[in-house]
Design a protein around this nucleic acid. Structure first.
Lengths: 103, 103
DNA sequence: CAATGTTACGATACACGTAATCATA
DNA sequence: TATGATTACGTGTATCGTAACATTG
């Protein structure tokens, strides 16, 4: 499991196809196929149903999607909170907006 | 940022020293030093105060620790929930205990 | 000198991209 | 044949471990 895998998974789920997700992520298709396959193997179940028209979430995938999004949001929040605490003596609870870049 | 970095960071914070953490994690010291250094650079601030007796959390580190632990817990929860959903038609909310291995 | 943390360096593993392959409307 | 997914293969980066170094009680 890696953060990249979570980010890839969310992109495919939201875009509805691997081809669209790879454009959004600015990577090529093969890494996406491999990482999702690896994620599915680790979880012990398929997350998507493949077709010639795209990839649709299976029930397990829908379940996992909720967690994946929360995890990525928490990482953003953690980074921003630590960075904010540097300039702010009284740390503000939150000041971020949805930005999900891992980097 | 990687999940390994989060796991390493939590281990050092909880053990109080890099030397103890590396035994708990079953890795050698250099990877720990490097990964924590890399994490600190990404966050833009030191997380620990180094001494010859160990490593103690700085305020930024304490702040980050809360997030890191929650993130790792959420990953465990996500994995277990998906796996549970395979055998259980009515998915039980939780059935896990603290196990934090990333693998 | 004993314990802790760090740096140097070589080897292995991981992840990517291009190109080729499979499948379907 | 056009679109989407996968597999094969080579390359570059990242991470690890051993070894050597630095610091301090």
């Amino acid at each position: 499991m890696s953060l990249a895998q979570l980010e890839y998974f969310v992109a495919i789920a939201e875009e509805g196809s691997l081809a669209k997700a790879c454009r959004r992520l600015h990577i090529s298709q093969p890494p996406l196929t491999r990482q999702i396959k690896s994620l599915e193997e680790e979880l012990g179940t398929k997350l998507f149903e493949r077709s010639h028209r795209g990839m649709n979430l299976l029930p397990s995938g829908a379940l996992f999607l909720n967690h994946a999004k929360k995890i990525l949001e928490q990482i953003d929040a953690a980074v921003l909170e630590v960075r904010d605490s540097l300039s702010t003596s009284t740390p503000a609870p939150k000041s971020n907006q949805g930005q999900n870049e891992i980097v």
